[in-house]
Design a binder for these strands. Structure first.
Length: 376
RNA sequence: GAGGAUAUAGCGCACCUGGUAGCGCGUCAGAUUGUGGCUCUGAAGGUAGUGGGUUCGAGCCCCACUAUCCUCC
């Protein structure tokens, strides 16, 4: 159940209630692809970085260790010891971005595993079965994420197929949720809007999937190569077409600036590999902009990453120490930088929520939207 | 003590029959958007161990010295 608590312009402050707990929105989901946040972070660390939702990947977990195994171990919550809400991706995006030799048919996608080349078939029913086995709080529908740019005719054909796949997803998950042996009988299905950067396809697709009255809706197929301004234009016209009383999830986005700008356009949920991937490569976020830990200027810098940050890393370690860890390729470098970046992202969302509540969001946006994208 | 080999960027190497030096790693800087612990882009950095000779011209050919390595006694 989603409650819309307050708005500020198009920005929304809401609350999503699930069987695994209540989530205050807007929020950012922390990506744990293979049931672990890369960088050596376990579910036990996530409270320290104020993580509201963990996101795991259907595609990866299906291949290894397999969803059947995870189900046998009691589902993802029991397996990972994460007790709060958990979202699973559908596998759609990975099939299109990682898998080799894929063939898209009406029934689904045939592809080879990126791990061992094994031939795999995944369609809407398979994706739902896998996510049901994983027992996540929120399951995402199986879609095709079309790369950008793509020709209009192909996007149209693909989007229509994604609609048909969504119907099959709903039928399949309803059936699974009704089964006595299902781990999470309250598993929620979110639909995904596609349509590339074509306004008429985006809007007609949104209207079609909204008719299913699903518990939430996502916008897919953005931040896949198009200019940032184009992504904002799509949000400008698609968000008003989305159900008001359902959470809106912009998939795979983005930079701190992207999050602020998307919230300003009415988005409630995000996920992105950026804070964790960049952290592992030495790029960290601060309230004065992004910076590279490995820069020589930090060689003897005794200050924390961000003097305004009170994360466990900034309370204890200096830039000089972190730079050393990166140069020495110590495993700890990634772990500490990831903890900081996740704390930063989750705190950013917390401050956005606070700003909307305090009727201060326009000022917050004006102050930070540009600043957070700049180099410190 | 004798014989042989090598000396070129911080490190490891290349430059074919002599025409004023390239590569990898590292360093420095920048990318990175539903994560294959990646990947990509750009920059700085050497006048070739030292001295001399041959030549219009030497990293390359010759001599001496120095250093290092290998083998033998």
């Amino acid at each position: 159940m989603f409650e819309l608590l307050k708005t500020s312009g198009n920005a929304r402050r809401g609350r999503l209630t699930t069987v695994h707990g209540v989530i205050e929105s807007p929020f950012f989901m922390n990506v744990a692809t293979s049931a672990a946040i890369k960088g050596g972070i376990s579910a036990l660390d996530l409270a320290d970085v104020k993580c509201p939702v963990m996101l795991c990947n259907t595609y990866h977990l299906h291949i290894r260790p397999s969803d059947e195994l995870i189900r046998q171990m009691g589902g993802l919550h029991a397996f990972t010891k994460w007790q709060k809400p958990l979202l699973t991706d559908s596998g759609g995006f990975q099939v299109f971005s990682l898998a080799k030799l894929r063939r898209i048919k009406e029934e689904g996608v045939y592809f080879s595993s990126h791990v061992d080349g094994k031939k795999i078939f995944m369609g809407p029913e398979e994706s739902m079965q896998i996510q049901s086995n994983l027992g996540s709080t929120i399951a995402m529908s199986f879609d095709e994420c079309v790369e950008s740019p793509a020709p209009y005719d192909y996007v149209k054909q693909s989007t229509e197929r994604t609609t048909r796949w969504l119907l099959r997803c709903k039928t399949a998950l309803d059936k699974l949720n009704a089964s006595e042996t299902t781990l999470n009988k309250n598993q929620l299905l979110f639909g995904i809007n596609q349509g590339g950067i074509f306004k008429d396809l985006r809007i007609s697709h949104m209207h079609e999937i909204a008719e299913l009255d699903l518990p939430g809706y996502a916008i897919g197929g953005l931040a896949v190569g198009e200019p940032t301004e184009t992504m904002y234009e799509v949000l400008d016209y698609i968000a008003p077409e989305m159900p008001v009383h359902k959470p809106r999830y912009l998939m795979g986005v983005g930079t701190p600036s992207n999050l602020i700008e998307a919230v300003a356009r009415g988005i409630d949920m995000f996920d992105c590999v950026m804070p964790s991937r960049n952290a592992r490569h030495g790029t960290v976020y601060t309230w004065q902009g992004v910076t590279h830990i490995t820069n020589e200027k930090y060689k003897t810098d005794d200050r924390p990453i961000d003097t305004e940050c009170d994360c466990p890393v900034c309370r204890n370690f200096s830039l000089a120490y972190l730079r050393h860890l990166f140069k020495a390729q110590e495993f700890l470098s990634g772990r500490l930088a990831v903890l900081h970046n996740l704390y930063f992202y989750n705190t950013l969302m917390e401050r956005i929520r606070g700003a909307i509540e305090a009727d201060d969001f326009p000022q917050f946006r004006a102050k930070y939207s540009l600043l957070l994208g700049q180099k410190r």
